[in-house]
Amino acid sequence: MVFVPVTCPRVTTMDCNMDKDIQEKNRLRRIDCRRITAAVKKLFIEANTDLGADVLASLQASLRKEESAIGRQVLEKIIENADVACRSKMPICQDTGLAVLFIEMGQDIHVVGGDLRKAIEEGVRQAYAEGFLRKSICDPLSRKNTQDNTPAVIHIDIVAGNRLKIIAMPKGGGSENMSAAQMLTPAAGIEGIKKVVVEKVLAAGANPCPPVIVGVGIGGTLEQACILAKKALLRPVGEENKTDERLAQMEKELFGSINESGIGPAGLGGRVTALAVNIEMMPCHIASLPVAVNIQCHVARHKEVII
């Protein structure tokens, strides 16, 4: 629940005649950079070794649904691997990803003891060095590895309150490569959107390690649609869009169509090609209909903390 302050928050409001809760939420808080670095480090190591309970539950449910014998074998191995990785503290996948972070920073936070972005990058650096995670970031042209998995991709939103939420999302290259954005015409409508999503997932086939989670962003601008699509991947697997019934309906239809494709686990044939289709949307220009499809492999990793 986001608290919306009714008065301009200041430290001195402690003297005002406001209830204690409001005082607490508006109080200016100092957060030391070292705390941010430590949190980021912990999140990336955990995300890479400990698969989320929602993803595991969805894989278990898929195993009961899958009719193809090879598909079931693949799902069993995926579940077994998650267990082995967690117990042995080994990365679930060798591709420990590009470090993507979503930061929700309360406007009443004062970061002290350094630079916020540098503190985050340092957390990534420490996680990948000390957690034995693969460094997969390189110069796009020379392809020279940066050796420490930085820079990270950091999205910072300023929100109400005095809390700092950090979401760490190691994103693998194989599934990211199968993602795309398209600027449709308004005439394309819902059918046009559905066509783009299904086409991208079907064309990807076995490449992005199905069963996949499909993040869809509709509206905004080109870059906003992509951010919405990526944020859609953070929603717990199995939860439908709760803000718009039209989107929940579209999610259901797309989920059905994709799972009729026959691609199946690891692309070896079967009923389970997607674990979820999550759509997020915002208004767009009267001339546009941006659609972004961000594909996530079955190693759907993200961990978060609120400081």
């Binding site: 191995k77 996948c93 194989g174 690891a266 692309g267």
Partner: peptide, 13 residues
């Protein structure tokens, strides 16, 4: 040959 992606802790064995 196809190997299964995303089961890397198991494959390491």
């Amino acid at each position: 040959f196809g190997a299964i992606g995303g089961i890397a802790a198991l494959t390491a064995q």
